[in-house]
Design a binder for these strands. Structure first.
Lengths: 167, 167
DNA sequence: TTAAACTTTCAAAAATAAATGAAAGTTTAT
DNA sequence: ATAAACTTTCATTTATTTTTGAAAGTTTAA
């Protein structure tokens, strides 16, 4: 396989993976492109490489910057803006985890708490509902706290975690 | 909040959460409904409760059964089939993790291996590509193995894991 | 200040994913 | 074997999400 083919395959795969995990295809593809680029890339280049519109590129770059996994860079003597991706994978995973926790898990926990604390009266059905949603609340809270813990580890938390799990 | 309202809120929230994580809304809603039901539910009841068509219900129940998180049940003297959800949350998490690993992570790893083993020639650009995709391969492999480890823990792996992380 | 060079926004269009429902397929009791 | 009772399939429709691109907005150098 030659370089250009491999590069394309990687960008496509990363894009497809993104959509399966609730991140839009273009956003994932731009991120992929920046990840494997050894120097900052201009918006023009991204549009050209991925064959997407200016608006789409702009919106998704903004989203990636909101997630904190893509940075703007300025080159001396250049009017245009350039972009780079967070390339450290531990850092990347932590940022994605934090963002999804904030956007999705925290609001879900709020709802779970609400519904699990209704007064259960005496029907078996209602008792089961309260029991099950309470358990779910505890589970999700525990999982979310685990994500928080990851962010406290300074370096290579994944490797260290695997070590611990293996005993 | 009364029971009916809480129940509805839970089902809607679970459905929305599902779509954010690449699982279709109805599939997640059916699962939610079965999770909080203290007894097996018929297809008719699911259709009625969620206001969805027979075909949709059937397809998504099948998908849930393929994932191994919903079971068919037969009631004595009843022609109809009933359904129940896996209610043990550890078991549920393990099954979902296994399934997503099989469907998404394993194929992605295959591609990552392919593209990271191209011959890098001498350009800095190609060297960076190979370096970055190799690192990504290692990272994803490690994360996937972590999921595997979870499944080996017999009971309450999440609780134990949190204990370990906390030191 | 101005205008060139660039970026962002957002209503409309296109692409994608999900849902419908009628027809085909199964199963089971008699 | 039959028909009633039920489930599944899949071509079509509907809903949702993403993309486009022209217009509006912004920044910078002179």
């Amino acid at each position: 396989m030659e370089f250009k083919e491999a590069k394309n395959k990687f960008v496509q795969t990363w894009g497809a993976l993104g959509s399966q995990w609730g991140i839009n295809k273009t956003m994932a593809q731009i991120h992929a492109l920046l990840m494997i680029s050894n120097e900052p890339v201009s918006m023009e280049d991204i549009m050209d490489e991925l064959q997407i519109s200016r608006g789409n590129t702009s919106m998704n770059l903004k989203a990636l910057m909101d997630w904190g996994i893509v940075y703007k860079e300025y080159k001396a003597g250049e009017r245009r803006e350039f972009f780079t991706a967070e390339k450290d994978l531990d850092e990347l995973a932590v940022k994605i985890a934090k963002e999804r926790s904030k956007r999705e898990i925290k609001p879900a926990l709020k709802i779970l708490k609400e519904v699990s604390t209704i007064e259960a009266k005496d029907s078996a059905e209602e008792k089961h509902f309260v029991d099950q949603t309470s358990k779910l609340y505890d589970f999700v809270l525990k999982a979310d706290n685990m994500l928080d813990k990851m962010t406290e580890f300074n370096d290579n938390w994944l490797g260290r975690l695997v070590m611990k799990i293996m005993k």
